[in-house]
Amino acid sequence: MINQKSKKIDKKINTETITSSKIINFEDPVLESINLNVYYGKSLAVKNVNIQVPKNKVISLIGPSGCGKSTLIRCFNRMNDTIRIARVEGQILYNKKNVAEMDSAEVRYRIGMVFQKPNPFPKSIYENVAFGPKVNGIKENIDQIVETSLKKADLWKEVKDRLKENAYGLSGGQQQRLCIARTLAVNPEVILMDEPCSALDPISTDRIEELIKDLSSSVTIVIVTHNMQQAVRVSDYAACMMAGEERIGELIEYGEVNQIFGNPKDKRTEEYVTGRIG
């Protein structure tokens, strides 16, 4: 008797090999780290990270506390320059240009950042958004920039009649969207978000997540999150980092979000996303 099914599954055994997947090469990555090592003083914190970030996609960085996610994300726009003891080896390329050789201010308005806790300036809502363009010498159409940025950040309807009020009067979720509007006002190509929803309630979190998805059609977003479901909801790709016995963070797996959270190749990623290490 011909046994078609058995024959075909034999082929499956031969073709299917599970390998660890750390590197994805994109045609035209907007950001790229090459052999990146980060030291705090003499301690190596992040070791040999090679990662490419594709344009107009959302990339989540996940991993247990202390694995180097924030350290990595801060390398992308040279925020680690502000930490005296931090030292970066290797290269970060922004559109193929080494960020170390670019003007740091230019790097930071091209690659904006939103932090864990909303950090509006102690100024009016309007001034918060207008700050970046003004610092960059833009004098015209500031009203238009403020309105457009607030609309993009899904905040315009709530604040259009109170633009002169102090930003501290806004709720936590509104303040975080204001910070996103402030970042958008200088027209960045990349926004780095370091746990942007960890201080927010579920409704505010949902609005930020919707915003991330909307913005990703025109902006690349790299987000650090401890919330697995959030990473699944908002990201196109996910990168898992892990620190071993020596407490040195490494990139252990990088892949499409459905693969990382549905069928991770690296056992450590599996244990982390299923909540068994952390």
């Binding site: 008797m1 099914k5 055994i13 599970i18």
Partner: peptide, 18 residues
Amino acid sequence: DQKKALKAAKDIFSQDDE
């Protein structure tokens, strides 16, 4: 493990043909 599972599945599928 994957290899053993595929072999066992193959045996089951062959019985289905029968």
